[in-house]
Write a protein that binds this DNA or RNA. Structure first.
Lengths: 339, 339
DNA sequence: AGAAAATGCTACATCGATTTAGCCCGGCCT
DNA sequence: AGGCCGGGCTAAATCGATGTAGCATTTTCT
């Protein structure tokens, strides 16, 4: 029932707990413990399969070897896949991950931060919600390593790893234009956060650069917290409301999925009658008929960079600000081909 | 930087830490602390936004209010969605979740159990791998609450929440038979674990009950750890190897996805030329053309039951064995219609 | 030889919360 | 007056690991 403690080893080895601690923490040399005693202790520790109690250690050292991962929704393919990469990378450094989903709700996010804080996680990976900047700043000032992901606060000096969302949207839109689509709409989430703003800006910039007239009836901004039925309903009526629409860019993966359902409900031919580009790759996009063109994020690289930065910061706090913007890849498929 | 401790409150209130602890743990009455002092302490605690240090508390009480969630692969839609339900349900009881993916690898699973153990999680939700029974039994004997999910060990007395996999496969197969398919194959994972055995048994039982000849060339068992390319390759050659095959049942969601890709690579018409049923619902199955019939698991109910059992066990250990087998739902779509 | 330095190890305080055992004071009883 | 009781609170031990300060003992140096 009870685990093996450092005392048990000390007793068996006939030395003090201090000595055991020194040896097991590799400070034998430094603390001038004899080879003999060292070896004896190590042998006993192995025999008893000693594992330090992380709570006790954490209490004493203030390090829990745990990182907090705050995502928008762990059930979303994008975040789940990232969570896997984070888990794997963190594991390499012997860190475990406590996760939580915000549902893009600031209060939930604040609650998560609070819980993670009094659970003494060593570092944070945060997909911030609106208005979370104050809390994050405070946390940073308290000396906690933090890496933001997916989005960031422009006015806040913090590490982050994000996609070049502007480029993603710009490339997607340009691609649609080059494929001959004339009246291109965007369906996005009503949010002032960077990732959404950049995607919208990329979209409008592409139109502008190609001298395509723009007006705001081409933009549909939906609240995050609709359920699928409502997304579909809203998207359907939006698509119907734009005269001569012939292409649409969905700015998130779940919008893309609902978007496809909507278009199919309208019985429009994807590709021919309406070009479609989604965001984030997904099995569905790859295997849909027609397959769906999308802006794909380099998930593995994102996760690796995040953990890498966090580990650097954990090991020597105060490393220079690292703000990584990764390149999206436009995966061209059939949904953006007229032919 | 440092948090507020019980001592800070004690100092401000002019009482001992003991008193503060009693009050904040609701033992004021029991420990005969006066109303006056109680109120003062509570007020100060609120003002200082006191949050108990979970490490210290955990060290003393042995309770960390953390549960370990071991899944096969957190990036897999099924497990990710379940992780979300578990997160939400656990949160209601003020528990946090540490997760880990086994990749269906026993050594990884053992490693996870070990890590979670010396991190002193209070309870475990485990998707076991092969040969993990010994470890689980030991853990159980050590008095740790455990709920198995998705699969279990028949010879091991443990709580579990699983699907009626036999029925799922039986219904799926029967459905294919009733739709007029004659030569039905199954693609499954080479595994002796209950969930896979039951699915295979359900499949063969359905054939038998409907007097459909069976031989083992209809069964393809693939190793879990192939990558997608290899799954597709293997499935393609299997499908080609079965003479007159006209339907196939894929026993897991990822097999279904790879299966669809395989069939499309062969250019067979799903539904008409080859009936298809998958396991676990997925956006892809819903929106594929043709849409894919599948055996759907009640994810919300599974997650709720798991956490419910775990909480009961945490609150009063030794509750009677709870073994829940939930009903699957056959979601009939176009991939199993000849017409 | 005697002092200084090096060697090898340990006592004890500490992290923050919990919990057991029990102190002190006032009132009541006989 | 002495004993008992109960109300109101606290000292101190505890959980397990860490790390500082320091105690013996031996070796080295002059």
């Amino acid at each position: 029932m009870k685990g093996i403690s450092i005392k048990d080893i000390a007793k068996q080895a006939g030395v003090s707990p201090t000595t055991v601690s020194f040896v097991l923490n590799g400070k034998a040399k430094e603390k001038r413990i004899s080879e003999q005693v060292s070896k004896r202790i190590i042998k006993i520790a192995e025999r008893l399969k000693y594992k330090p109690n992380q709570l006790a250690r954490g209490l004493r050292t203030g390090k829990t070897k745990t990182i907090g991962l705050i995502v928008e929704d762990i059930a979303n393919n994008f975040f789940a896949t990232l969570a896997k990469v984070v888990e794997d990378e963190a594991d390499k450094h012997h860190y475990k991950v406590l996760y939580g989903s915000t549902e893009d709700n600031t209060d939930k996010a604040k609650g998560l931060l609070e819980v993670l804080k009094y659970r003494q996680v060593d570092g944070y990976i945060i997909t911030p919600t609106k208005n979370l900047d104050k809390e994050i700043e405070l946390l940073g000032e308290a000396g906690k390593p933090i890496v933001l992901m997916d989005r960031y606060f422009p006015h806040l000096e913090s590490h982050y790893v994000v996609l070049d969302n502007f480029k993603g949207a710009y490339d997607a839109t340009t691609h649609l234009i080059e494929q001959g689509y004339k009246k291109i709409a965007i369906v996005t989430i009503a949010s002032d956060q960077t990732q959404m703003k950049d995607r919208l800006n990329g979209f409008t910039a592409a139109l502008k650069d190609h001298k395509i007239p723009f007006n705001k009836s081409l933009v549909k901004r939906l609240p995050f917290d609709l359920d699928r039925e409502n997304f579909i309903q809203e998207i359907k009526s939006f698509l119907l409301s734009v005269k001569d629409i012939d292409a649409v860019f969905f700015a998130t993966n779940y919008l893309g999925i609902s978007g496809i359902e909507s278009i199919r409900a309208l019985n429009w031919k994807i590709g021919k009658e309406i070009g479609v580009v989604g965001f984030d790759d997904h099995d569905l996009f790859r295997l849909h008929s027609p397959s769906i063109t999308c802006v794909s994020q380099p998930l593995q690289a994102i996760g690796e960079n995040i953990v890498d930065i966090l580990m650097k910061e954990l090991n020597r706090p105060g490393t220079p600000l690292t703000q990584i913007v990764l390149e999206p890849e436009l995966v061209v498929r059939d949904s953006s081909k007229r032919g």
